[in-house]
Write a protein that binds this DNA or RNA. Sequence first.
DNA 1: TGGCACTATATGGTAATGCCAAGTAGCTGT
DNA 2: ACAGCTACTTGGCATTACCATATAGTGCCA
Lengths: 116, 116
Amino acid sequence: MDADLLANWTTQMRKGLLELCVLMVLRNRRMYGYDIAKTLSVVDGLVTGEGTIYPILSRFKKDGLVETTLVESAEGPARKYYQLTERGRALLTKMRAAWAAVRDGIEAVSSAEQLR
Amino acid sequence: MDADLLANWTTQMRKGLLELCVLMVLRNRRMYGYDIAKTLSVVDGLVTGEGTIYPILSRFKKDGLVETTLVESAEGPARKYYQLTERGRALLTKMRAAWAAVRDGIEAVSSAEQLR
DNA sequence: TGGCACTATATGGTAATGCCAAGTAGCTGT
DNA sequence: ACAGCTACTTGGCATTACCATATAGTGCCA
């Protein structure tokens, strides 16, 4: 029951941060969904399944943050590669700044003996 | 429209982190809701209104993470002070560890030239 | 031929949280 | 009486992560 609380909380904590990570792994090269999911799951246990990544990528495309290219694969079905647009790059820059601010804020609360 | 995307994302990013901050400010002394809201809003723009804090505190009490003490005030209505229980303290410890892991994971993604 | 595992994308329903607005109420000063 | 600050509470809305499931192509092995 205590484990449930913690598990639920970590789920909530992931919200938004997953989108940031997806945009960040795309900043240097294009990637396809399945590979992104595998990559991020290795990093931190951030992603549990592919079902979490695809809705994010769909939203990104709908919002014009990424463009897609379909490429045939020798190892299975065709891969849909995602690459950042200018708009996506601009938003990523702002998101990284916002992330840094929140991260620093939390660290401040975490280390402060007493605030104010 | 770009600003909307960013604003919406920051809202999502806050999820969970707000709970962490509330537990952290309570770790050294008891506080009342209105004061917690003011304190955290100063820190980082984490909180927009009191309506965001009170539901969190209610949940904490329901889950046995905090206990409350009603104290009369000379400056307005009585204040409901919140203090951490042992259970709350134990969960906070685990949450801080989870936060550190995710934060470091994101920093790794952020600074990596290329993962894997 | 059939079964199995891996690769790869997509979708629908559920649960949980942050946000905004509004309401209730006590106290102070004019 | 009124305005303004303090203080707590509640309800509805929008958004996202998760899980299970569906669909499908490829290669391997008996």
